[in-house]
Amino acid sequence: MDSIAKRALAARKFAKMTQKQAEAVSGVKQSSISKIERGDVTRSMSVLALARAYRADPNWLDTGDGPAPWDEDQIRQARDRANEPPGPYRVTHTPPSIPSFNPRTPGTVPLISWADAANWDSHEISQQPHAERWIPCIAHHSLQSYALRVRGDSMTSPSGLLKSYPPGCIVFVDTALRKPDDGERVIAKLEDSDEVTFKVFKQDDGRRWLLPLNPKHEPVRTPFSILGTVVGKWEDED
């Protein structure tokens, strides 16, 4: 097969997965999977995630070099270490269960629900609620960190001058950082409703409020408590 598009489509079909199922397992948006399979994307970091989801040789999926998932003889020549002999490249065709990484794998944080974020700090680490999956976070963070999938458009900036957080992107939150500086992005709980929200923290002359990046939404000036500070963001390429 002479293209990533054909190999990606064939590998997904062989894994007996729909694009939606592949999105759930790999974390790659269905729209991105569709673009790869149409040939609109020739090279993408998403290919590695899809290879893991399909249990395919990532080198084969990316370049066509190596065993295809349906090849009986899964032997791959060693390339990176000169003294390493050829060995079996084991491939299974059962999609990995969520979470993608084992819980508490070093360098990963749990992707949790907004409801769980409200009481995350009240649990011991070993008793924290079930995560949708564990995902890598390269930003420096404490063990009390988690990830949230952004909902709503209040943090979607209409200007290209500000970093934007569109619905569906993922933010990494460190709950050990509860004293943010003015302008930092935070997760906060409104005291009058217990609603958890994602906003820009603002303070001036003793006053504190929460500011959305989208001017269509109103600032929050009611009492609130800081649950954590955003230390990073992940957004798929479309």
Rank of each mutant, 00 (worst) to 15 (best):
Ala56Phe: 09
Ile33Lys: 00
Asn83Cys: 01
Gln77His: 07
Ser44His: 12
Gln30Asp: 08
Glu37Phe: 09
Gly39Leu: 01
Gly39Trp: 01
Ala82Thr: 12
Val28Arg: 04
Gln19Trp: 02
Thr42Ile: 12
Ala22Thr: 01
Arg12Tyr: 02
Thr63Lys: 07
Ala11His: 02
Thr63Cys: 15
Arg43His: 07
Glu72Arg: 03
Gly64Thr: 04
Asp71Glu: 11
Leu61Glu: 00
Trp60Glu: 12
Gln30Gly: 02
Arg55Cys: 05
Lys16Trp: 01
Gly87Glu: 14
Ile33Glu: 03
Ser46Asp: 12
Lys20Trp: 03
Val25Glu: 06
Asp73Cys: 05
Ala82Ile: 15
Pro58Gln: 09
Arg79Asn: 13
Glu84Pro: 00
Lys16Pro: 00
Ile75Leu: 09
Val25Lys: 10
Met17Asp: 04
Arg52Asn: 11
Leu50Pro: 03
Arg79Pro: 00
Arg38Ala: 04
Thr18Val: 06
Arg43Gly: 07
Lys29Ile: 03
Pro88Asn: 13
Asp40Thr: 00
Trp70Leu: 02
Asp62His: 09
Glu84Gly: 00
Leu9Asp: 09
Phe14Ile: 05
Glu84Thr: 14
Asp73Met: 10
Ala11Ser: 10
Gln77Leu: 09
Arg55Leu: 00
Glu23Ile: 00
Asp65Leu: 14
Thr63Met: 07
Arg52Ala: 11
Gly39Ser: 06
Asp65Glu: 15
Thr18Arg: 11
Pro58Met: 07
Gln77Asn: 09
Leu61Ala: 04
Ala82Ser: 11
Asp65Val: 13
Arg90Asp: 07
Ala78Lys: 10
Asp71Trp: 02
Arg52Ile: 08
Glu37Cys: 04
Arg12Cys: 04
Pro69Tyr: 01
Pro85Tyr: 05
Ala49Gly: 02
Pro67Thr: 12
Asp73Ile: 15
Ile75Glu: 01
Pro88Ile: 10
Met45Trp: 15
Lys16Val: 12
Tyr54Thr: 11
Arg55Ser: 14
Phe14Lys: 08
Ser44Tyr: 05
Ala82Phe: 13
Arg76Asn: 01
Thr18Asp: 06
Asp57Leu: 04
Leu9Arg: 15
Arg43Ser: 14
Arg43Leu: 10
Asp65Cys: 01
Gln19Val: 02
Ala56Arg: 03
Gln74Glu: 04
Ala11Arg: 04
Arg43Asn: 14
Ala8Leu: 05
Gly87Pro: 00
Gly66Cys: 10
Ser31Ala: 15
Ala68Cys: 04
Gly64Ser: 11
Pro67Leu: 09
Ala8Cys: 13
Gln21Gly: 06
Pro88Val: 14
Lys35Phe: 03
Thr63Val: 11
